[in-house]
């Protein structure tokens, strides 16, 4: 079963680019939210993750802060 994955990112953030590339390389589909353009979703990210750094990756409700490859793999079960 495919897990619901959301990536909160900014276009200029190198680790966001790498995190999204990592998901693509593993054939994971995800919703990509540009928090620099979408203020409401930015607030949602800050509220839900309790911090302001990007990227934040939401995997079925589990919030992973930063490009934590091991954390992402574990949450996705890959």
């Amino acid at each position: 079963m495919n897990k619901k994955v959301t990536v909160y990112s900014t276009p200029t953030c190198p680790f966001c680019i790498r995190a999204k590339q990592f998901l693509k390389d593993n054939n994971i589909t995800f919703e990509d939210i540009d928090v620099s353009a979408d203020h409401a979703r930015a607030q949602e990210m800050i509220k839900r993750s309790g911090q302001m750094g990007v990227p934040v990756i939401d995997i079925e409700g589990k919030m992973i802060v930063g490009f934590d490859k091991e954390g992402i793999k574990e949450a996705l079960g890959i």
Binding site: T10, P11, T12, C13, P14, F15, C16, V35, S36, H39, A42, I46, G50, Q51, M52, G53, V54, V65
Partner: peptide
Amino acid sequence: KNKGLTYCATCDAPLFS
């Protein structure tokens, strides 16, 4: 750290509009 204080302006600056 990451709660308003950051070492990566390139990454996080857009959040501070």
